[in-house]
Amino acid sequence: MSTEAIAAAKPKRNYNALFGLTLLALLVLLWVILSVATPSFASANNISNLLRQGSMIAILAVGQTFVIITGGIDLSVGAVVGFATVIVAMLINAGVPIFLAILITLLVGVAIGLFHGFGIVKMGLPPFIITLATLTSLRGIGLLMTNGNSISINNDAFQLFSRSSFLGVPNLFWMVILVGIPAYVFLHHSRWGRYLFSVGSNAEASRLSGVNVQRTIYMAYTLSGLCAAFVGVLLASRIGIGNPTQAEGWELQAIASSVIGGTSLFGAVGSVHGPLLGAFILATINNGANLLNVNAFWQRIITGVLIIVIVYFDGLRRRGK
């Protein structure tokens, strides 16, 4: 309890928007450079490809961001994606109507999220631990269910969806918009969004102010599970198989996108546009590196360096330099 203000109170107005614009500028800059540097980057084909690549991580990153804002982390999302491909593939092959198969898969994602909430709220486990546990067990359950084999999906309509475009834009990217707009409204214009921030900032103060902290935690993990299951459906549609080992390491890409997008791992700082931009920046770097024939190993290093640089400069600015 310092007896006086440490520093001048500076208005932080539009900070989020400003940071978002900076990220957008970075993304556009990358695109301009790559268009000049490689003949194939600006082709319609490649852009569609890029949007498809980035879309799934982008949706994962949005769910992940909700969790991180509460001060938690969801390591299970990659495993949930893989598990969801298995569920949706099995259901479709069993003759369940596509619509129903998708709905059930999404509900499985919700159930996994609720389980995370239960582990954190009722069992008192740290988020890192409970989601790490589901990460490994879900992969195991999926392997048991499939005997370690891939399940080919016998339904062309289902697979056609993720390969098609609407108004010239890949359907997968439309899905980002479908998730992104409600997510934005939820986070920035509903009271539940405010509660995510307040719980991440100070759970005890929120509780004493009448915020239902437990329900808020449940909500964050449920939404993350839901986003992951949705991505699982999209992935199954894209590759045409159900395989529990798919999406290995996607949780880390989702976390990286979120962090590049300005989310603070300490909680209470984050947005929806940030992780979306973060995901597409990562996708662009991978895509560009491929086109420039940069060794795939280097791509990982570049991603790591980028995380350090962006988070470092973001931290500098937040500290008010």
């Binding site: 309890m1 006086e4 203000a5 208005p11």
Partner: peptide
């Protein structure tokens, strides 16, 4: 406080 958007931590006790 300069505005309602200032962070609570920037205020005096």
């Amino acid at each position: 406080t300069p505005t309602r958007n200032a962070l609570a931590s920037s205020l005096s006790g």
